[in-house]
């Protein structure tokens, strides 16, 4: 079984999310998953009246993404989390923890981007 998803690109992201907001959708969360050495996949989930809509997008590791937290304030936590775990940076976060949401900078035991099998250097 594969989820029904709509396609999204980095450029159309903010526009599309604005549209969802004006249609009365609620932001649920973003899921990030590692695909291979170079790419991760971002899934944006929205909800209205118990119906979920998913957007899918592939981005290269280490990319900087536009943040949707200025549109949906609720997104700031999950975007910070993704930066912690996958090293995808988000621009203009309303509340930026700078990669220290869960992990401390001075810890050597934990690699940066612990959720990637092939870990990358965070920028």
């Amino acid at each position: 079984m594969i989820l029904d998803t709509l396609h999204l690109t980095k450029e159309t992201l903010r526009e599309e999310v604005e549209k969802m907001k004006s249609k009365g959708y609620r932001f649920v969360t973003i899921t990030c998953l590692e695909i291979d050495e170079d790419f991760v996949e971002l899934l944006y989930h929205f909800d209205k009246d118990l119906e979920l809509i998913h957007y899918r997008m592939q981005v290269a590791k280490g990319t900087t993404m536009p943040s949707v937290s200025t549109i949906f304030f609720a997104a700031f936590l999950v975007e910070n989390e993704i930066y912690d775990q996958f090293g995808i940076k988000f621009d203009d976060l309303v509340l930026d923890f700078g990669g220290t949401l869960y992990l401390d900078e001075d810890e050597e035991e934990v690699t940066s981007t612990p959720f990637c099998r092939y870990s990358v250097k965070r920028k």
Binding site: V28, T29, T31, C32, E34, F73, V78
Partner: peptide
């Protein structure tokens, strides 16, 4: 499993 992602209720209630 390839990936397990859990979005919990308190995560949504923090904002």
């Amino acid at each position: 499993l390839d990936r397990l992602r859990i979005r919990t209720p308190t995560f949504a209630n923090i904002p």
